[in-house]
Design a protein around this nucleic acid. Structure first.
Length: 221
DNA sequence: ACCCAGGGTCATA
DNA sequence: TATGACCATGGG
C-alpha cells in the first residue's frame, strides 16, 4: 500500500466495479454534480425525479422556470435557494457555450478554468463534471479521499486540493475509466463506515484504513 | 437530540 | 491564508 494505484486495486478487488455516474444524459450528470454538494445521493435523486417529471431536465427548460418554481422542485436535495441559483448559473454557462456538444472539444485544463468561473462550481464539482460528464481522466478529491489517504500515510493531510490531485494522477496514469471507478470506490468504501469510526470492522484494506498511523505501521516514512 | 451527506460562497481577521 | 457561518433536507 505505497501508492494510490495500490489502493485502487485493493478497493476494486473488494467491492468490484461501481458503474458511476447513474444518469441518462450528460446534463443529468452535471445537474447531479451541483445538487449533490454536501448532500446524500438519495435526496438528489428525488430532486432529479422532480425535474424529470416537470420536463425540466435541460438548460433551456430550467432557465425558463421562475426561481421559486425551480426551488420547489429542488427542495428535497436541501439548500434549495442556494442550489437554485447554482443550477441556473451552470445552465447559463452551458447555453452561452452552445451546449454540451460544442464544449466536448475544449481541452481539459481550459474547460476546468472555465468551470471554476461558474458560480457554485468549486474544484471538486469541476473535476466531477470533467470526469463523469466529459470523460476526462482527472481524479476527484473529496473529503473521503483526503481522510483515507491521510490515514494510510499517502499524504500528510494538509495539502491543497490540486497537490493531492497531481500526486494521485502521477501514480495512476490517464485512464478516465480508472478515475471513474476509483472515486466511486472511495465513496462507497466511506459509506461502509470505515472512515467514520476510529476502528473499522471488516476493512478490506490490508492492515486497515483507520487510525493505525499512531501505532506506527501503515505507510509513512 | 444529535450528526452527517458524493461542497461552495461570503464575511471576517 | 485560514477559519467560521450559512445554506436546508432526510436518514441513521
Amino acid at each position: 500500500m505505497n501508492s494510490a494505484a495500490d489502493l485502487y486495486r485493493e478497493l476494486f478487488e473488494a467491492y468490484g466495479p461501481q458503474r458511476w455516474w447513474p444518469a441518462d444524459t450528460v446534463f443529468e450528470v452535471i445537474a447531479g454534480a451541483v445538487l449533490t454538494q454536501n448532500t446524500a445521493w438519495y435526496n438528489v435523486e428525488r430532486a432529479l425525479g422532480n425535474l424529470k417529471r416537470a420536463h425540466a431536465l435541460s438548460p433551456d427548460a430550467i432557465l425558463e422556470l421562475p426561481a421559486d418554481e425551480l426551488g420547489a422542485l429542488l427542495r428535497p436535495s436541501g439548500c434549495f435557494r442556494v442550489k437554485t441559483r447554482r443550477l441556473q448559473s451552470v445552465c447559463r454557462w452551458l447555453r452561452d457555450r452552445g451546449g454540451v456538444e460544442s464544449i466536448g472539444s475544449v481541452p481539459t485544463e481550459a474547460l476546468r478554468h472555465s468551470l471554476l468561473r461558474v458560480h457554485g462550481v468549486g474544484e471538486e464539482t469541476a473535476d466531477a463534471i470533467l470526469l463523469y460528464a466529459f470523460g476526462r481522466p482527472v481524479f476527484v478529491v473529496d473529503a473521503y479521499a483526503r481522510r483515507l489517504f491521510s490515514r494510510l500515510g499517502l499524504i500528510e493531510g494538509n495539502e491543497t486540493y490540486r497537490a493531492i490531485r497531481s500526486k494521485v494522477q502521477s501514480q495512476m496514469g490517464d485512464s478516465a475509466i480508472d478515475y471513474n471507478e476509483f472515486h466511486a470506490l472511495i465513496v462507497e468504501h466511506g459509506k461502509r463506515a470505515c472512515l467514520k469510526t476510529p476502528r473499522c470492522a471488516g476493512c478490506p484494506i490490508p492492515d486497515g484504513c483507520s487510525f493505525r498511523r499512531e501505532s506506527g505501521r501503515v505507510g509513512g516514512p
